[in-house]
Structure formats: C-alpha cells, structure tokens
Design a binder for these strands. Sequence first.
DNA 1: TCAGTAGATTGACGTTTGTCGATGCAGTTA
DNA 2: TAACTGCATCGACAAACGTCAATCTACTGA
Lengths: 113, 113
Amino acid sequence: MAARTPVTRDLVACCSPVRATMPDEMQAEVLAQTFAALADPIRLRLLAFIASANADEVCACDLLEPSGRSQPTVSHHMKILIEAGLITREKRGLWVWYRIVPTRLDALRIVLG
Amino acid sequence: MAARTPVTRDLVACCSPVRATMPDEMQAEVLAQTFAALADPIRLRLLAFIASANADEVCACDLLEPSGRSQPTVSHHMKILIEAGLITREKRGLWVWYRIVPTRLDALRIVLG
DNA sequence: TCAGTAGATTGACGTTTGTCGATGCAGTTA
DNA sequence: TAACTGCATCGACAAACGTCAATCTACTGA
C-alpha cells in the first residue's frame, strides 16, 4: 500500500520503479492449461455434475443425456478434465467411472488467494 | 458417499439412478468466460504481476517489458481481464493504471470449493 | 470363438483465439 | 493551435478449439 511517490503523483514521468514479479513462463503455462480445462461451459457442467452426485463416482453413460452433447464430444471433454488432473477415470467391465480429485481443486483455490 | 448399490456392484446393468445436478447453460457460460480469462499464460503473469506489486496499482507502461509482448497485445489481454471483472482500469493523464479486484478472485475461490 | 456393447480415437469442418503492424484517439506540452 | 505521447482499436493471419459422423478397441456373455 506504499505510495509510489512519497508525496505527490508525478504526471510527467510515469513509472517510478515498480517492485513486482511475474511467474516464469513454464509455471504460467501449466497453470493456464488447468484453468483452460474450466474455461468451457460443458466441462464446468460435467464437473459440477460429478461433484454434486450422491455417489462418489459417476458412470460415463450418465453424462450423455444431461450434457446434450454427442458421445465422442463428452469423451473428448472428459479427457481434458483428466489431463488437467481434475478428475480420474476407472474402467470396470464395459463401463467407465469418473471421480473428482478434491486436492486439485484445493490447489487452484490456493493460487487464487 | 452412499454406495450406488447397497451391497455388491452390478456389472451388468450400469446406471442405477444418479442424483446429481448440472448448473444451467447460462450460469456455466458466464463462469466459463471468467475462467477463460485465466486460461492464458500471459494473462496469468500480468495478473500476478499486478497482485504482487508493492503499490496497489500498476501503470500500463510497466507491463510491456516484463511480459515480452507488443503493446497492442498487452492492451488486448488487459481488456479481457477487465471484462472478466478481475481488474479495473483508470486513466489519469496520459497513463492508465490497473488494480486487481479482490472480491472477484474470492468469488472464483468459492466456486471451486 | 463370435456377436454385441460402452467408450476412445480419427478425420474433417467452422469458429474462436493470440499475435502484431498500422492507425485512431484522448490528453499533454509548448 | 500544433506537435507529441500513451494506449485502444482495426485488420489480417496462423494456431488452437469444439463439434459430430464414422470407425476402432476392449470387454462381456453365450
């Protein structure tokens, strides 16, 4: 909260020295990719659906109808959520079951605050 | 946490009734757009830079060099952050000053958990 | 085996996004 | 007023993204 200039603002010469840091490009790239997984309305709805389920896992077949998207499209979005570490996938028999990864959401929350 | 089937898992008939809800498309759209603002490494770095500054606001001219992008590109990214409600912009004289909006980050944190 | 099924992958297409050079606009200085 | 400056907007382009029909793969049950 310290003023950049001690007493008055200098309207002529802007930019007295700023002390601030940027995360390096690689860090930012990884984090951006995680947020990108949340940057699509269908993926947000899929994630919220699983998070709100009465069971701790949800069958893939339950995601098609409420999402209103084709099977390949839903599969594609789930893959992106998995690669972002937000959910896990487990195949049992013919079916696939998804689980959210709470620690990953915790990590994002920490970044934001 | 209740098991979907009381005792054993049914490997034949998947999908005993799931109780879960999806946010409607409009809600998801708005939220996705906010996360999309965080889904670019340059924007994350710009935001982190302002958030970490020793002053509570940062001049636009201080963002060019550390970001390594052209002036129009930085201006474009800042506009997206503003439209997402993550920062504010104030013009004073020839210069523009940016501030983060802490309440907006709070809101996102709540959504995540 | 072999037919049937759930979900992943592929290929193609239109849309959106990140980028920068050129230009426009508001504000300052003389 | 005129010259100058910092930032926004425009126009163009390549890359990335969301979508679905068609196909492939892994698994089941007979």
